[in-house]
């Protein structure tokens, strides 16, 4: 018997590959909604990153355990008060922001726990959802938002502008922003009009240090 090899960067979901590029070697990462643990497994093997994933789904927990990833089965909506302030280099949340009860409070907690945070979400300001709602009068269903209004886990969808307004209100520093299309590619047009042309938004954030 042998342990299955950790995924390479090329084997990661494109969004996770982009996130992995933002994480320095030899650091500590807390991954909120870590799914099957591929990001942490890759980071550990490729960059000697240590960390834990939080995940609510039982099958994903089993997948993490099988991959040798430290996974803690818990609900993000129960809060993260058990984690000490600045106890991680990065707190990552990939495509889960729109599914939690209070995204604003959770981002506040991420910034407390991590020196930096990385957040990704589907941009509801992209022209496609706008067109669906504005022209056809239908709630959008797309590759990045595949669920229908009645069965979607997405209860707090937002746009790039909404998100940045929240960051301003909370005095959150945006270290980096990257917007991509559904194929996770970017171009000059997308960088110029991120809210209209970006389908997925990635942010690296730093909290307002109250000392």
């Amino acid at each position: 018997m042998s342990v299955p090899a950790a995924p390479t960067r090329a084997e990661l979901r494109p969004e996770l590959a982009l996130i992995s590029d933002w994480i320095a070697p030899e650091t500590r990462v807390l991954d909120l909604g870590c799914g099957d643990g591929t990001l942490l497994a890759h980071l550990h093997a490729a960059r000697n990153v240590a960390g834990y994933g939080l995940e609510i789904d039982a099958d994903n927990v089993i997948a993490c355990v099988a991959a040798g990833v430290n996974v803690l089965q818990m609900d993000l909506d129960d809060g993260l008060s058990q984690f000490e302030s600045k106890s991680f280099d990065y707190v990552v949340m990939s495509s889960a922001l729109q599914e939690v009860m209070r995204p604003d409070l959770l981002i506040g907690e991420m910034l407390r726990i991590g020196r930096e945070s990385i957040v990704t979400f589907p941009n509801f300001g992209h022209w496609r959802p706008r067109a669906s709602l504005g022209l056809r009068g239908l709630m959008p269903v797309s590759r990045t938002l595949p669920n229908r209004w009645y069965d979607t886990p997405n209860i707090h969808l937002c746009t790039v502008r909404d998100f940045e307004a929240l960051c301003r209100d909370k005095q959150v520093e945006i270290v980096r922003r990257h917007v991509v299309n559904h194929a996770h590619q970017s171009n000059v047009m997308m960088r110029t009009f991120p809210n209209l042309l970006g389908e997925i938004a990635l942010y690296q954030l730093r909290g307002h240090d109250t000392g």
Partner: peptide, 15 residues
């Protein structure tokens, strides 16, 4: 689990 995380130990938890 919280104590193990605080102590920086390797831990997984299933509920």
């Amino acid at each position: 689990v919280d104590a193990l995380v605080d102590a920086g130990k390797q831990v997984s938890y299933a509920e």
